[in-house]
């Protein structure tokens, strides 16, 4: 087993290195409008409320932007739901402090779209329709691919579940866990996927059977669920991020993500707030983060860039290069159906 890990690790490092070199050569592929740059420089600062992890992404993105434009990025890190609460209060008091934000669908459940600026920079043209708002009020900046992970030292390869139906095998009763995060990245996303794939009736049938399997609820993030799987508390982790499994496996952890098709794909979106203190700097920042240059910062941090032209550091993590099917849960779908999926979760699993 350790042999396989080493092989994968070397391959990954190699790929990352090549991509980085390629990225440097093709830098500044997009040139933002000079008038916007000037106006932004006059404002001098951009305030970014982020839901990303500071050490991994917020600071690297901020530093890259500052280096390119000489405009200071002030950031504050808040989970998406809490961020929306905070911003709603700022809007209500007519004292918006942030220019740009990023958050997953949970953010948009709380934040009415009317409060956001419609802005589609040139860089956004490269993105497929399912990753952006037709009116330009949000664009995906990175993707999350969610799937089942298995503890390889507790479960031999021959016994790994291959399909969603395999999860109903009595041998998994009480041995599976998932987060209590009520977003498309948690149980509601799983439920949405099942209903799409099996249809309403058969889907509900499946979910009722799954509820009988006593899936353990872990009141923490998807990463914590995965850590508990690695530690052997559970054998399977449902709705875990595939890149987390790869990062841990590279350090020697006994874990593998499974291509249980279709996997779930969701987005993390960037947007601009109306009446913000630095509107031009905000636009320039969105420009940057959607550009190939900005997206390479995500790649370097081992995240999945949303830009179709920027592969992941480990390319097989994205469906095109990894050859697996996904159900894309768009922000619109999440907005429309999340309450319904959440209700099913509460009725069956909580």
């Amino acid at each position: 087993m350790s042999h396989g890990h080493t092989a994968r690790l070397t391959r990954r490092t190699l790929i990352a290195a090549t991509l980085l070199a390629a990225g440097l050569a093709a830098s500044s592929a997009t040139a933002a409008d000079q008038a916007l740059i000037d106006a932004a420089r006059k404002e001098g600062t951009v305030v970014w409320y982020s839901s990303l992890i500071v050490n991994q992404l917020v600071r690297p993105v901020a530093e890259a932007f500052e280096a390119k434009y000489g405009i200071k990025v002030e950031y504050s890190r808040t989970p998406a739901g809490e961020m929306a609460l905070k911003l709603l209060n700022e809007i209500k008091a007519d004292s918006v402090q942030a220019d740009a934000f990023d958050g997953n669908s949970a953010f948009f459940q709380v934040m009415p779209l009317d409060n956001l600026v419609a802005y589609s920079p040139d860089a956004a043209a490269a993105y497929p329709a399912e990753l952006k708002d037709p009116n330009g009020r949000f664009h995906a900046i990175n993707l999350a691919i969610l799937t089942t992970a298995v503890n390889t030292s507790l479960v031999p390869e021959a016994e790994w579940p291959r399909t969603y139906d395999d999860l109903l095998d009595p041998k998994w009763k009480g041995k599976m866990a998932w987060t209590t995060d009520l977003t498309p990245n948690g149980p509601p996303g799983f439920i949405g996927n099942i209903l799409k794939v099996y249809g309403e009736d058969k889907g509900m049938d499946y979910l009722k059977k799954l509820a009988g399997q006593d899936v353990v609820k872990v009141p923490a993030s998807q990463r914590v669920v995965l850590d508990q799987v690695i530690a052997g508390e559970h054998q399977l982790g449902l709705m875990t991020f595939n890149h987390h499994s790869v990062i841990s496996a590279a350090k020697g952890a006994p874990v593998v993500w499974l291509k249980m098709e279709p996997l779930v794909s969701t987005g993390n979106y960037v947007g601009l707030l109306k009446n913000s203190p630095h509107p031009n700097a905000g636009k320039l920042f969105v420009d940057f983060i959607l550009s190939e240059e900005g997206q390479k910062v995500f790649q370097a941090a081992n995240y999945l860039p949303a830009h179709p032209g920027v592969p992941a550091a480990e390319p097989t993590l994205k469906p095109e290069a990894g050859h697996f099917k996904v159900t894309v849960i768009t922000n619109e779908e999440a907005l429309a159906d999340l309450p319904k999926w959440t209700k099913i979760y509460k009725d069956l699993f909580q």
Binding site: V54, Q56, S76, P79, A220, Q222, V224, V225, L226
Partner: peptide, 16 residues
């Protein structure tokens, strides 16, 4: 920013 925010970061990201 206070230290607790950094702790929550790590907790949510599960970097135990």
């Amino acid at each position: 920013q206070v230290i607790a925010v950094a702790m929550l970061d790590l907790w949510q990201n599960g970097q135990a």
